[in-house]
Design a protein around this nucleic acid. Sequence first.
DNA 1: TAGAACTCGGATAAAGACTGTCCGAGATCA
DNA 2: TGATCTCGGACAGTCTTTATCCGAGTTCTA
Lengths: 168, 168
Amino acid sequence: MSELDRLVIMKLSNGVEWALHSCVTLSQSREPVPAARLAELHGTPPAYLAKHLQALSRAGIVRSRAGQVGGYELTRPAAQISALEVVRAIDGDGPAYRCTEIRQRGPLAVPAERCERPCAIARAMAAAEDAWADALRRVTIADLAARIDADSEGTAMAAVSRWLAATR
Amino acid sequence: MSELDRLVIMKLSNGVEWALHSCVTLSQSREPVPAARLAELHGTPPAYLAKHLQALSRAGIVRSRAGQVGGYELTRPAAQISALEVVRAIDGDGPAYRCTEIRQRGPLAVPAERCERPCAIARAMAAAEDAWADALRRVTIADLAARIDADSEGTAMAAVSRWLAATR
DNA sequence: TAGAACTCGGATAAAGACTGTCCGAGATCA
DNA sequence: TGATCTCGGACAGTCTTTATCCGAGTTCTA
Ligand code: FES
Ligand code: FES
């Protein structure tokens, strides 16, 4: 690990990247795709990716199908799944900034009866998080697939579909 | 720990809250304030708060003064210090979403020569983080102090100044 | 209808980050 | 000169994240 990487503190689980790419891949297949196939395609540990897919299943984003022809598939059209849903399913739906109410502690503690409204600092942090969430809510899995396809001059998604069909 | 707290995944260090409140407090004092005094006022572990104040010192937000009348003081007027600077100093200045470039792995790996531009997914996540950062960049420590004062009907900051002077 | 193979699902260890604490180096004042 | 107070980085404990495994359930085949 390089020095630069060590200075950077990781705040979001790296599984978010795998989950988003997996959703984009699933949007290109009409049939269920096994977790092991997705892991091979993305070069990730199979068992760990499966754990994240389970989280997506609990969130209602994907549906699992057991058996020989089983696997994972999207429950809704890709245009109706926002990136925010995927991130929240993996990383947790709680706020990143958690107010401990330290204003109610110490010699100058504010009485609880005056703390009906959140602290001004907590309000500012919550507003920033809302802006972050809104930016992600406006992007759908279909948008991401289209952009990746455009970056590859319209060859990437077709290659994915071909690979999925060939190794079925 | 309650069940609700366990469901919420903590992504941001809670030291961010202590640092922001400490900066607001420091903005109300013309003289250096020792870390132990700030810890007593906020009801936090003294040694751990000191560690975070050291991080603020490295970032150039506060200046430390050793000796009997030493302590911490802001290096600039509170109106020129953004909340984003404080958050970045404590939680790290790296992006929360870290792209691992998984598109360059696996059987359908994209050649590196085609990866000059970041992945579309990474771009969307970066745009969301920019929105978050912009919201925090527009808020200064002086703004937060004014809002906390307004919430307390103009008594909070005066009480802080009085307490700091009385216990000097 | 019985069998076999393939899949998901949760339960189980190892690693790293955050939390919390300590004592020494340095500076100021008497 | 000495004492006292301050910061600063170095030291353990706890929790989340990472990674992995084997059993339960389902589907196709003979
Ligand atoms: S008391 Fe939690 S942010 Fe002010
Ligand atoms: S390769 Fe990292 S987000 Fe697409």
